[in-house]
Amino acid sequence: MNSPKNTDRTAALAAALHAAEREVREIDGIVPAHPDLTLDDAYAIQRALVALYERPVVGLKAALTSRAKQVAMNVTQPGYGTLLDFMKVDGTLRRSELIHPRVEPEIALFFEDLPTDRMLASDEIAVLATGFAPALEVIDSRYKKFKFTAVDVYADNCSSSRFMLGRDVLPLPHPQLELAGVVLEKNGDIVQTGAPAAVLGHPFTSAAFVLNLAIAHGVQLPRRFVLLTGGITEAVPVEVGDVIRCRFGGIGEISLSVTE
């Protein structure tokens, strides 16, 4: 799999995904033309894609954390994407920079000096994380009509696009974090509700899984980083003029406005 031919293909597919994102245009899935690609190949494309930005890594995001999505993607485990500094927004989303963005609520965990020499267990996360915050993630698949397989989406950095963190970082442990009510409004209408249990039962389970996988893959994380633990509700499409407000019971709220 590390033959020169495959290395060339990895670089070419990463370049195509990078160009699609920079030029704000959707492309066909890569699997139909490359049916032999494995999930490992997909992560190699993701690493090459992330490197093309030449921007600092600020964290990770968990993907495919709901059973429904795993079944739809024919996988049994979640995956991860890599967050870069330019993806962080503060209250405003510029629609013209994105293809077909969708917003989903998540719990963000913050880490500092995470041990990388051993496997992490989910029951350690409350101690290892320095805190948590409510978050909105903006996903924006580079693929036409948001249609993809697991290999496609891992290569495409798991549709990572933008993210916004709540103002306050809260301490852990937080009682019944998995049952905090999450209420997502679009232009004043409640469009989604859920609870953090939607991500593999608990955000800590998702966190431990994704951290172990990324560390095993040799992903270089900064000393301090953020982890988005996975979408709590279905992702909501947004257009210019939309205002998303999300309340997290006992945790806080976030608003995001979509401009041209």
Partner: peptide
């Protein structure tokens, strides 16, 4: 506030 209680 019943609105913001989560359930699974």
């Amino acid at each position: 506030d019943l609105r913001l209680l989560g359930m699974a």
